[in-house]
C-alpha cells in the first residue's frame, strides 16, 4: 500500500466508523467482552489503548527507515510493550482505584491484535502526521466501541451511567453479568450490520 492519500479527518472517521476495531474488524475483543460492564471502565481502557496506539504509531513512523525487515514484528512488539508499561505504571500511580478494577487487562494491551495490525498496515509506510491521525482514529474507534458497550450494559444492567443513578431501578440485571458481554457484542454487531445494509440499499435506490 502506498502512502495514504486520505485527509486527516477521513483517517479519524475511518477508524471510528468504517473500520471500527470492535464492531467492524472484530479485533481486540477480550476487553470488549470482559470489562465493558461500566462506562468508566470503558473510558479508562479506551484512553489507555488510544495512548498506546498513538504513541506506538508515531514511534514506528519515525524510526521505520532504521528497522531491519527481518526483525520487524519483534520491534513492533517491543515498542508496544514499552508504551504499555509506561501507561500501566502511570495509571497504577495516578488512578489506583480504577486500575484495580481493570486488573490484568491493561497489561494485556500488548497482545491486542489491533495495535500490531495498524503498525504493520499503516504506520510503517506513512510519515508522522498521517500515522498520528490514524492512531487517533483507531484508538478513538476502540474508545467509542467500549463506551457504547459500557453505555448499554451499565444502563440496562445497573440503571446507572458513570456510576450515577439515572433510571433509579435496574431494568435487566442480566446485562451486568460478565457473560452478557458476548451477547451485547453480538447484538451490537448485528445492529451495525443492519445499519450498513439499510444504508447500502438507500444508496442504491438513490443512484438508480
Amino acid at each position: 500500500m502506498p502512502a495514504t492519500t486520505k485527509t486527516n479527518f477521513q483517517l479519524v472517521i475511518n477508524g471510528i466508523l468504517k473500520e471500527n476495531p470492535i464492531f467492524r474488524l472484530a479485533l481486540s475483543m477480550c476487553p470488549a467482552v470482559g470489562i465493558s460492564t461500566t462506562m468508566m471502565n470503558g473510558l479508562m481502557l479506551g484512553i489507555a489503548v488510544l495512548f498506546v496506539q498513538v504513541f506506538s504509531s508515531c514511534t514506528i513512523s519515525l524510526v521505520k527507515d532504521y528497522i531491519h525487515p527481518r526483525i520487524r514484528i519483534p520491534t513492533y512488539t517491543l515498542v508496544i510493550a514499552t508504551w504499555v508499561t509506561v501507561i500501566d505504571l502511570t495509571l497504577a500511580a495516578l488512578a489506583p482505584v480504577a486500575y484495580k478494577q481493570m486488573g490484568i487487562f491493561i497489561k494485556l494491551i500488548v497482545a491486542f491484535a489491533i495495535i500490531t495490525m495498524r503498525l504493520e498496515v499503516f504506520a510503517c509506510k506513512n510519515t508522522l502526521w498521517p500515522s498520528f491521525w490514524d492512531g487517533v482514529g483507531m484508538g478513538g474507534g476502540f474508545l467509542f466501541g467500549m463506551l457504547t458497550l459500557g453505555f448499554v450494559r451499565e444502563l440496562l444492567g445497573a440503571g446507572q451511567l458513570f456510576g450515577y443513578d439515572v433510571l433509579g431501578f435496574r431494568p435487566l440485571l442480566f446485562f451486568a453479568l460478565p457473560v452478557a458481554g458476548f451477547f451485547c457484542v453480538g447484538f451490537l454487531m448485528a445492529a451495525f450490520n443492519y445499519i450498513e445494509i439499510v444504508y447500502n440499499k438507500r444508496k442504491k435506490a438513490v443512484n438508480r
Binding site: 472484530a26 460478565p178 457473560v179 452478557a180 458481554g181 458476548f182 451477547f183 457484542v185 453480538g186 447484538f187 454487531m189 448485528a190 445492529a191 450490520n193 443492519y194 445494509i197
Partner: peptide
C-alpha cells in the same frame, strides 16, 4: 441465520450461551 447475524454476531451469541 438472519442476514444481519450471519458470521460473527451469531458466533458471539453462541459463545455467550457457552459462557452461561
Amino acid at each position: 441465520v438472519p442476514v444481519t447475524y450471519r458470521g460473527l454476531p451469531i458466533a458471539f451469541v453462541v459463545a455467550g450461551l457457552f459462557a452461561l
